[in-house]
Simulated assay, not measured.
Amino acid sequence: MSSDKKVLLIVLDSAGIGFLPDADKYGDVGSNTLGNCSRAVGGLNLPNLGKMGLGLLTDIAGVPPVDHPEACYGKMAERSPGKDTTTGHWEMSGIILDRPFPVYPDGFPPEIIEPFKEQIGRDILGNKAASGTAIIDELGPLHIQTAKPIVYTSADSVFQIAAHEEVIPLEELYRMCGIARELLTGKHAVGRVIARPFVGTPGNFNRTANRHDFSLKPPARTVLNLLKDNNMEVAAVGKINDIFAGEGVTESVHTVGNMDGVDKTLELARRQFKGLIFTNLVDFDQQYGHRNDFRGYAAALEEFDQRLPEIIAAMQPQDVLMITADHGCDPTTASTDHSREYVPLLVYGKQLRRGINLGTRSSFSDIGATIAGLFGLIFPVGECFLEEILI
């Protein structure tokens, strides 16, 4: 295939399709983000994803299996340990971790917190594992009174700092996150430090779109680096640039919500563009999965499905669309954390075969290997499935 093409890689953040064989180690047996969500709302209306073959991957109420799917379809298991955003995205780009990022279910130790407080020049609130929205409701009023930032974590490898934008300006919040990032190295090298700004009044707080992730730099080259080094463009839409700490990215595009992410992806797809458009649609996870809002999750899935024909219409004949996820976040379980799940793999192109069953891939890294292959390149990690989908 010609190298004069675009690959659109769209990550439906947390759209898992069933727990992995080792889910018992993570407390996630029974999780199935899309399947359980569909049953909780009495069925999903996803005609376009259904035509692509989504209903062939797991039992999704309202999305029956189709005989002649328009895309190639399969599911992927995560080989790296963990179930967080960074691990998932790094693996699909070609980095397979041999140990999980550190987590802090009991909060961060004094060897991290004390120098952090000293360097930011103020005390903190929190320092515990909590739901982001719950801890803001709990400690937001005291934060407004004291101007102490709220520090918290989750089941994921994250150091999160929440602050009201009128109490601690964004620039100062980001400075604090930078300090934390510099402290969190070695055995404390968490995957991400996250700025969590919010606005509003007690009882009516809302997180804003000014979130910013301070990620570790990838420990090895990714397919993004390979494309960039071969004069391809790599456009990072949403939080992709943050996840990769800018490595291998030629253009970073900020987004405000899923539909803005789709809009920005469409703008890039309609441009003269040779390379990768790597999009993360975070609302599924951030707004609904972590809040156990299965109705909101279902509505967001249906909203994306309605935009899918626009995305396909914007593609040139040689372009390729891949739709996947980075982990699960089942909104029907008691947990508000990510879940260790298989993720969907849907691959569509006007010059590709249709209805090919790609099976169960042993690693997310097969995506990166195949993207490299689409541009006539070879990436050493992952199993390229290009020969299976070429006409």
Results as ranks from 00 to 15, higher is better:
Ser93Phe: 03
Ile96Lys: 10
Pro100Tyr: 00
Pro100Met: 12
Phe101Pro: 00
Phe101Thr: 02
Val103Asp: 01
Pro105His: 12
Pro105Met: 14
Gly107Ala: 12
Phe108Thr: 09
Pro110Ala: 06
Pro110Thr: 01
Pro110Met: 00
Glu111Cys: 05
Glu114Ala: 10
Glu114Met: 14
Phe116Tyr: 04
Phe116Gln: 01
Phe116Ala: 03
Lys117Cys: 07
Glu118Thr: 05
Glu118Asn: 02
Glu118Tyr: 00
Gln119Phe: 02
Ile120Thr: 05
Ile120Ala: 01
Gly121Glu: 02
Arg122Asp: 10
Ile124Pro: 00
Ile124Leu: 11
Ile124Thr: 11
Ile124Phe: 15
Leu125Trp: 13
Gly126Met: 06
Asn127Glu: 06
Ala130Met: 04
Ala130Trp: 04
Ser131Ile: 11
Ile136Asn: 00
Asp137Tyr: 07
Leu139Met: 03
Leu139Asp: 08
Gly140Ile: 11
Pro141His: 06
Ile144Asp: 05
Lys148Asp: 09
Pro149Thr: 03
Ile150Phe: 00
Ile150Gly: 04
Ser154Glu: 04
Ser154Met: 06
Ala155Asn: 10
Asp156Lys: 06
Val158Tyr: 10
Phe159Trp: 03
Phe159Asp: 08
Phe159Met: 02
Gln160Met: 13
Ala162Trp: 03
Ala163Ile: 01
Glu165Ile: 15
Glu166Arg: 14
Ile168Glu: 00
Pro169Asp: 15
Glu171Thr: 12
Glu172Met: 06
Met176Arg: 07
Glu182Val: 01
Leu184Val: 12
Thr185Asp: 13
Gly186Thr: 11
Lys187Asp: 15
His188Trp: 13
His188Leu: 11
Ala189Phe: 10
Val190Arg: 13
Gly191Met: 04
Gly191Ala: 15
Arg192Phe: 03
Ile194Ala: 00
Ala195Ser: 15
Ala195Glu: 07
Arg196Thr: 00
Val199Tyr: 05
Gly200Glu: 05
Gly203Met: 12
Asn204Arg: 04
Phe205Gln: 14
Phe205Asn: 08
Arg207Ile: 12
Arg207Glu: 15
Asn210Lys: 14
Asn210Glu: 11
Arg211Cys: 06
His212Lys: 15
Ser215Ile: 12
Pro218Ile: 06
Ala220Arg: 15
Arg221Tyr: 04
Val223Met: 14
